[in-house]
Structure formats: structure tokens, C-alpha cells
Nucleic acid binder design. Structure first.
Length: 727
DNA sequence: ATGATGATATTTTTT
DNA sequence: ATATCATCAT
């Protein structure tokens, strides 16, 4: 057996993990230390060297992208396709189990998956239906509560209300929500995991089957597992299963959605014989960047402890720029991006990272003005678009009439004379008789409802029944096409003003293509339409499937995790923004923000800029902030401060006399002359109108003037950007 | 059923 | 500043 291709490209630590004997292994893999490489080489090692059948391997990831990448890399290592190797997301694998054992899991065969948006709508409707004072309840919080309980593996009957009325009510909501889901055969994301766990818990025979089959479990991003995911893994591993988990406690940034780093410590308790391997050699960044990252993360108290190092070069210093305001910050970034391009680098190799999405706007405006192509990550994905979800809801209703979530979505979309009143009547009937909207509609249409409403409801029901009959023997794509055409959605969107409707119709056509390209997994014995609907829910598609152009990359630090760029700008580094205001108050929150900062820094390969604005317009208000405490945590000797401001405009100290003030005034006048304006000069601004120059500071591209506008008050403007007309 | 008006809140995101 | 949402008027 030639093990060279598997072991040769590895360093000692990586090799120790990959070639570990049959024992549980926990790999603490620092950023850029070759985590995916270890995972894929371990799989190859097991198959090729240990003779483990691919069928006995289960590899779990968090995202579809990671799953696809892992499969691709294992196949290229082994130089053969590994179809029987189960690689997937926790949710995807749980879904697979539930489809195979739908009866044991007490689900209808055609159960459907609802996404968080469907879930939220369901909860909003539930509140209406229960005639609850909805000013007291925020649907999002109820959703959060339900998911948090499910993530912990808890059913309503397991939860203690602790004598708290609010909590008691929340538990009641969970209960009612669950009843609606059960009735409609609906399964939300958290439910997939919980059900799969309960399936194994309640059916030892089923569990045993999988325990026997999967002798080796590989887990990616282990620090991101929530309680139910870890419980699921532990159950599957049983006494003899071998868990190989890879993660980084310092990159745990998803506590707010249930992830528990503590599982890394729990692992060592649950598997005391486990081998722990730390990967600390970094193959991504310059030494300076790594030193900075190490220094920042060292301020966290709860960590396993790890120090990244490289045998590469020191590289450039980390450049910190303090901007006057967010526009000046954006201008500075534009300048650096221009330099970057001018030095012959690809724009796509530069990324601008920010803490929250709202920050992208100013950057986008500046990039647009500067004619620099850019791409914003995140945003609406294909299967999440309204029109797509509308079409899918029709399909869901065709597949299962009791799907209330789908029913409510499309019953009056396009408008067909079934208004709020009529729907309310149906809801009331449904609630009173504990039945679905569809059955309620049937019952109500024949007696309770008035003529017009009744006719509309009957027409809707006939439409769905008709669709169901018509498409029975059609191919999947033709089914989708037919349902879209009969639904009336096309005409409905045609009436929409602007180009929006046009785009929506194009998207619906795209949905038909997606259906045409959909291939049902050969060893999955399930209805093709149901499989397609599940696929739509579990893989919402690309956020921005733009053609690959050479674009600057804009994204949040969260979405940057797992990526790397030769040049990185971390912007908006102000206390209150990053670390975020809502995380400032508790230690856990602050430490998570710091880990996020660590993630941001370690995205950079060669060049790292850190910027902040002293003044920022946020929520329509100007606010002043201190630079982020994380900036102060960067070692001084690694940092180069970029300070364009000149000292003349610094506030004068109390003890300074008139003479100094006069000098200062002269200096300002001189500075004004230098940048081509005169104090007291009248100017005109495109937006603020006419005004008078009161003051100025800085020079070159950073020169600013203070202008007193007749109608807009006093403002500081960056001269090179403000486009002032001198009068 | 649709549109205008005013109140409200505004991290992070995958499945 | 702005997006979302409920409420009220047309």
C-alpha cells in the first residue's frame, strides 16, 4: 500500500491525527492550519490503509458547501467516486434518516420541511388564532424560544415553567405550534434533529443498525455543535463508534444560535481515552498577522490555549486608520483598494469585512462612485425569494392538503376574493375542530360562508384538486411548470410595477429549470416532488450566484469564516459596533466578539487594514465612539498608525492664552489657503444648499471644512468628496 | 383590496 | 436613515 499521497503533504501534527490508531480523536485546528485537509486525509487513510469500507464512514458538516467540498476532496484523493460514503449536513443526514424511517419516527410519508420564514409565519398566525394580545408577544422571541428548546432536546412536557407566567405561556405556544406541525406533517429545522434523535432513542433496533454500519464518524466545525447534535453524535458513536472531531474553540462564534464550545471539553470527559491533537502551524498568514491574532485572543479567559505560528515571513505591519466619519473611512478604503489594484493584484483578492450588514451601504455607495466592481455576500437566496416560495407552497398543497403553512400562503395569492374575514372564519373552524385549514375550508364553504366567499373558496379548492389530477403523470419539471401556470402567479406578478415583476417571472422560469436539473438520489426511495421540496428547504441555493467577475468582496465577519484573502480590511472597529453594543455587558458576549475579531484577523494572508470612524451616522443620528478595545489589544510593535489629520484643530487646552489661540487661528487660515479655500467663503453643496466656511483641517485627500449651511446647520465635510461649489 | 400614515426597532446566519 | 408592520381610510 502506497501511503505517500496521503501522508506526504502533512506536517507532524496533521500526520498524527490522520494516522491515529482506532481511538477517538479530537483535533484542535487553528485558523489556516489545514483542518479540511486533515479531515479528508483521515477519510482517505481509513479507506485506503485501514481498509474501512466507505459505507462505514459518516462525515458531518454544518453547511452544504462544506459537505460538497469534503466529498470532492476525498474523491480526488482516492481518485474514485465514493457514492456510498455518507457525507452531509446534520440536517441533511437527519432528513435522510427520517425519510427512511418515517413510520418509526411517527411522521407522514410525505412530511415537508419548513424553513425559518415559514416557521415565523406559522407562529404569527398562531398568535392571531389564539386571540392573544400580540402587543405583549414578539413572534421572533417565541420562535427563538421554541428553537432553543428543541436545540436542547426538550419537548413542552419536559420544560419547567419555574413558576413564571411568561415562561408558562411560551411553553403553551410551543405546544400549540407543535400541534399545527403534527397535523400538517410539517417539520422545522430543529425538529429534523430532534426527531432523528428521538427515533434512535425510542427504537434501539434502528439505532443499532446504524451503530453497526457507521464505525467511524468524522465531524467538522465541532465547536459549532448544539446540544442535540452532540447528543445525536454520541448516541450514534455508542460504546464502540470512533469519533474524529475537528474544531477550534477560538472560532466559536455561533453561541447565539445554540452552538456550545463546551462540547470540546465534554468530548474529553465522554471519551477519556481520546487522543487530542493541536494544529498550530498556520499556512495562510504572515507572521505579523498571526502574532496580532494570538495577542487579541489571548485576552479571552475560557479557552483551551493555542498559539498559531508560521515559518513564513513577518510581512507588513497591520495598518490602523482612524477616520473622521464613515464616509472618510469608506474613502480611505477605496484608496487602499485602488493601490491594491495598481500593484497588479486582483480585486477579488481583497475583502472588506464589517460587523453588521447595515455598514455595507456606505461602502457600496463609495465603491459605486469609484467605479470599483464589488460583490456583497449574503442576502436573499434563490429558494427564499417570495415568488419561489409562493410556487413551492402550491406544490406543497398539491402534495399535502393539510399543510396549513402552504394553504395560508397561497389561498389568496394572487387575490381571488378570499379576504381576511373569510380566512378568519376558516381559522376559527379549524381551531374549534382541531383540523387543518383545508378541511375547515371544505366545511365552512358549504354552510357558514356567504355566496361570494363560498364560491371563491370552492374555486380555490377545485384549482388545487385540478392541479393535483393534471400533474399526476407528468415529469417533475412539467409538474412545476403546470402548477405555476395554473396558479395565476405569472399574471399577478406582471401587474407589479417596475422591473420587480419581470424578475419574479424570470425566477419562476428558473424554478422550472431547477426542477429539470434535479436528480433524485438513486438509493432514496421517495416521491420525486417531495424530494425536490425538501431539497429547496435544505439547500436554499447561492446568495449571489453572479457570474465570476473580478470583484472586491464585501461581507460580515461571520460570513467570512472559513474564507481567506490576501488583503483584508476590517472596518467599523468602534466600541459599540464591534464589539457590538449588545455584547458589551457580559463576559460571554464580549469573549464571543473577540473570537469574531480573531476570525476576522486570521482571514488575511498578507495585508491587513483596521479602520474606525470617530463619528458615525447610525440610525439617522450622528454618534461619537471610541476605537474598538480590540485595536488596543493589537501589539504596538505590529501596528502602523495612519494619521492624516494635522494637529492644528485639536481643541485648545484651558490654560492656553489668547496668543496661542491667535496662532492657531493663523494656522487654520494657512491650512485653508493650502487646500484652496478661504475661511468665511460662501459655498454651495448639492444637498445642503448654501453656506459659509467656518473652519478647516487636514490636507490633501483628507482635508475637511466646517460649513455653516443656511438651512442644514453646521457640518464637517471632506473636501475631496463633498463637491462644493465656491461662490 | 390597496395605499397612505405613523409607530417601532435596528448583530451575527445555516439548516 | 430605513425597513417593517399595524392601522385606518379609500
Amino acid at each position: 500500500m502506497d501511503v505517500t499521497p496521503i501522508l506526504d503533504p502533512l506536517n507532524d501534527a496533521q500526520r498524527e491525527a490522520v494516522a491515529a490508531p482506532a481511538e477517538p480523536v479530537l483535533v484542535i485546528a487553528g485558523a489556516g492550519s489545514g483542518k479540511t485537509r486533515v479531515l479528508t486525509h483521515r477519510a482517505a487513510w481509513l479507506i485506503e490503509v485501514e481498509g474501512v469500507s466507505p459505507q462505514s464512514l459518516l462525515a458531518v458538516t454544518f453547511t452544504n458547501k462544506a459537505a460538497a467540498e469534503m466529498r470532492g476532496r476525498i474523491e480526488s484523493l482516492l481518485k474514485m467516486p465514493v457514492n456510498h460514503l455518507w457525507i452531509g449536513t446534520f440536517h441533511g443526514l437527519a432528513h435522510r434518516l427520517l425519510r427512511r424511517h418515517w413510520q418509526d419516527a411517527k411522521l407522514p410519508q410525505n412530511f415537508q420541511i419548513i424553513d425559518s420564514d415559514d416557521q415565523l409565519r406559522l407562529i404569527k398566525r398562531l398568535l392571531k388564532n389564539l386571540e392573544i394580545d400580540d402587543s405583549r408577544w414578539v413572534p421572533r422571541e417565541i420562535q427563538y424560544f421554541i428553537n432553543a428548546q428543541k436545540d436542547e432536546g426538550l419537548r413542552p412536557q419536559h420544560i419547567d415553567d419555574e413558576g413564571d407566567e411568561t415562561r408558562r405561556q411560551l411553553i403553551a405556544f410551543y405546544q400549540s405550534y407543535q400541534e399545527i406541525c403534527e397535523r400538517g406533517g410539517l417539520v422545522d429545522f430543529a425538529e429534523l434533529l430532534l426527531r432523528a434523535h428521538e427515533l434512535w432513542r425510542d427504537r434501539p433496533d434502528v439505532l443499532q443498525h446504524y451503530q453497526r454500519r457507521f464505525s467511524h464518524l468524522l465531524v467538522d466545525e465541532f465547536q459549532d455543535t448544539n446540544a442535540i447534535q452532540y447528543a445525536w453524535l454520541r448516541m450514534l458513536a455508542g460504546k464502540t463508534g470512533l469519533l474524529f472531531a475537528v474544531g477550534d474553540d477560538d472560532q466559536s462564534i455561533y453561541r447565539w444560535r445554540g452552538a456550545r464550545v463546551e462540547h470540546i471539553y465534554q468530548f474529553q470527559k465522554d471519551f477519556p481515552q481520546a487522543r487530542i491533537v493541536k494544529l498550530e502551524q498556520n499556512y495562510r498568514s504572515t507572521s505579523n498577522i498571526l502574532k496580532a491574532a494570538n495577542a487579541v485572543i489571548a485576552n479571552n479567559s475560557s479557552r483551551m490555549g493555542k498559539n498559531l505560528w508560521t515559518d513564513g515571513i513577518d510581512g507588513e505591519a497591520i495598518k490602523v486608520y482612524s477616520a473622521f466619519n464613515e464616509r472618510d473611512e469608506a474613502d480611505f478604503i477605496i484608496g487602499r483598494l485602488r493601490d491594491w489594484s495598481a500593484q497588479g493584484n486582483a480585486r477579488a483578492d481583497a475583502a472588506v469585512l464589517y460587523r453588521s450588514n447595515a455598514q455595507s451601504r456606505v461602502l457600496e455607495e463609495a465603491l459605486m462612485n469609484a467605479r470599483i466592481p464589488y460583490r456583497v455576500y449574503g442576502g436573499l437566496r434563490f429558494f427564499e425569494r417570495q415568488e419561489i416560495k409562493d410556487a413551492l407552497a402550491y406544490l406543497r398543497l398539491v402534495s399535502n392538503r393539510d399543510d396549513d403553512s402552504a394553504f395560508e400562503r397561497v389561498v389568496n395569492r394572487p387575490t381571488r376574493g378570499i379576504g381576511a374575514r373569510t380566512v378568519e372564519t376558516m381559522r376559527a373552524y379549524g381551531r374549534a375542530n382541531a383540523t387543518s385549514m383545508w378541511r375547515a375550508a371544505a366545511a365552512v364553504a358549504s354552510d357558514t360562508l356567504a355566496g361570494r366567499a363560498s364560491a371563491s373558496v370552492l374555486a380555490f379548492m377545485q384549482l388545487i384538486e385540478g392541479m393535483s389530477r393534471d400533474i399526476k403523470n407528468l415529469s417533475l419539471a412539467d409538474k412545476v411548470d403546470h402548477v405555476i401556470n395554473l396558479s395565476g402567479l405569472i399574471e399577478f406578478f406582471k401587474k407589479e410595477k417596475g422591473e420587480k415583476g419581470e424578475t419574479r417571472i424570470e425566477n419562476l422560469e428558473e424554478l422550472v429549470s431547477a426542477a429539470r436539473g434535479f436528480v433524485l438520489d438513486a438509493d432514496e426511495d421517495m416521491d420525486e416532488l417531495d424530494a425536490f421540496l425538501a431539497h429547496a428547504a435544505l439547500e436554499a441555493g447561492e446568495g449571489q450566484a453572479d457570474a465570476w467577475e473580478d470583484c472586491v468582496q464585501l461581507m460580515t465577519m461571520h460570513s467570512a469564516k472559513g474564507l481567506e484573502f490576501p488583503m483584508v480590511v476590517m472596518c467599523g472597529m468602534e466600541d459599540g459596533l464591534f464589539p457590538h453594543q449588545r455584547s458589551l455587558n457580559d463576559v460571554h458576549g464580549l469573549e464571543e466578539e473577540r473570537r469574531l475579531c480573531y476570525v476576522g484577523i486570521t482571514r488575511a494572508r498578507e495585508v491587513l487594514y483596521v479602520t474606525y470612524a470617530e463619528q458615525r451616522r447610525l440610525h439617522g443620528m450622528d454618534s461619537y465612539a471610541q476605537q474598538s478595545r480590540f485595536i488596543a489589544e493589537l501589539p504596538e510593535d505590529l501596528v502602523e498608525e495612519i494619521r492624516p489629520k494635522i494637529e492644528t484643530s485639536r481643541p485648545l487646552r484651558q490654560h492656553q492664552g489668547n496668543r496661542r489661540i491667535a496662532t492657531s487661528a493663523n494656522l487654520r487660515a494657512g491650512a485653508a489657503e493650502e487646500i484652496g479655500v478661504r475661511l468665511g467663503q460662501r459655498v454651495r453643496h448639492g444637498k445642503f444648499g448654501d453656506g459659509v466656511i467656518l473652519n478647516c483641517e487636514g490636507h490633501g485627500a483628507h482635508a475637511r471644512v466646517e460649513v455653516n449651511f443656511e438651512n442644514a446647520g453646521t457640518k464637517w465635510l471632506v473636501l475631496s468628496y463633498a463637491n462644493l461649489d465656491l461662490m
